[in-house]
Design a protein around this nucleic acid. Structure first.
Lengths: 167, 167
DNA sequence: GGGCGCATGTAATGAGTTACATGATTGA
DNA sequence: TCAATCATGTAACTCATTACATGCGCCC
């Protein structure tokens, strides 16, 4: 449940309502974080039940009411515990795209090249989106940089595989 | 369901029984693939139901009977479809370790350094395990190389973060 | 008047994991 | 004799996703 860590960390910075959190994740953490809207709402409600956050209902004019969340002392303690847990462990990441590459030689080169070309284009688009993301305060920016590194490594790797296919 | 692609690809090479598949994944694809035993058995049974593989029960002496799986024509067709699907798409990978880094500045440097040291040691161990894996035929080796690249990028990145923490 | 943005959720489903269950054989 | 290896699974659970549901306000 590292999603909790993320939401706690973001709320620790600014109190936010769910919609706002989702917007922030979509626009400012694009391509780094995959948390869908219902998941965020679900996690928020869970943390509310657990006493990690409290919510205050506010309303502007006739707009839909917002639930603004802020951390409790227990939420802060949970955050401190979760960051340390996360920092101290190595989280091996899985590459779903590997299984295709693993059996690349089952596909004739003339077919494989354009397919990997499509993959490459999507990767480049991802990288562009990542570099378009606004710069963040402090260590939040580390996440963007980290992602950028891996995407660059991925691109270099993919180009090498494509080059090998030319032969 | 990229697990299906992997199992099909492996079975396409050699007919195997479930235990054997699990052993191969554990020993020969260490750190690249995370498929737990029950998952593999589950997927095998599902593919059996779907007619992608057939199984033949064999027994050596009084040992437990084995179910040896081999691809059907439909299985081969499914494999061909799935490889192309996989090759043609970019699969963004998620880095669960990012959320810790994103809030690194919430932890004092004296605490963060040893925690990241533990993370680094686990990463180095992972890399060593990966390099101890036997070399595979053909493109299966690409998966190992790919993983190695990313682990090296990760190590370089982590060392950079640690260096920044020294200041 | 029609579609998008704001704002929150529920319900159903899926994929995969952990823990549990079984039972024979082999080697220390 | 005790643990590890061989061999297969089931049951319960978790986490997250997709699809669905609601309803007002704003702009073209």
């Amino acid at each position: 449940m590292d999603k909790q860590l993320l939401l706690l960390g973001l709320l620790r910075h600014h109190d936010m309502h769910g919609y706002q959190l989702n917007e922030f994740i979509e626009h400012d953490l694009a391509t780094c974080v995959q948390i869908k809207k219902p998941t965020a709402y679900y996690v928020l409600n869970k943390m509310l039940d657990d006493g990690w956050v409290i919510s205050e209902e506010t309303q502007e004019g006739n707009r839909p009411p917002r639930r603004v969340y802020s951390l409790t002392a227990e939420g802060e303690a949970a955050f401190q515990r979760l960051v340390r847990e996360n920092l101290g462990a190595y989280h091996p990441s899985q590459f779903g795209g590997d299984f295709g590459l693993a059996f690349l030689d089952a596909v004739p080169g003339e077919e494989a090249r354009p397919l990997l070309g499509v993959r490459r284009a999507a990767l480049v688009a991802h990288l562009a989106a990542l570099q378009a993301v606004p710069v963040h305060h402090g260590s939040l920016q580390l996440m963007i940089e980290h992602q950028t590194r891996h995407l660059q490594a991925e691109l270099a790797w993919l180009d090498e595989v494509l080059a090998r296919l030319e032969n």
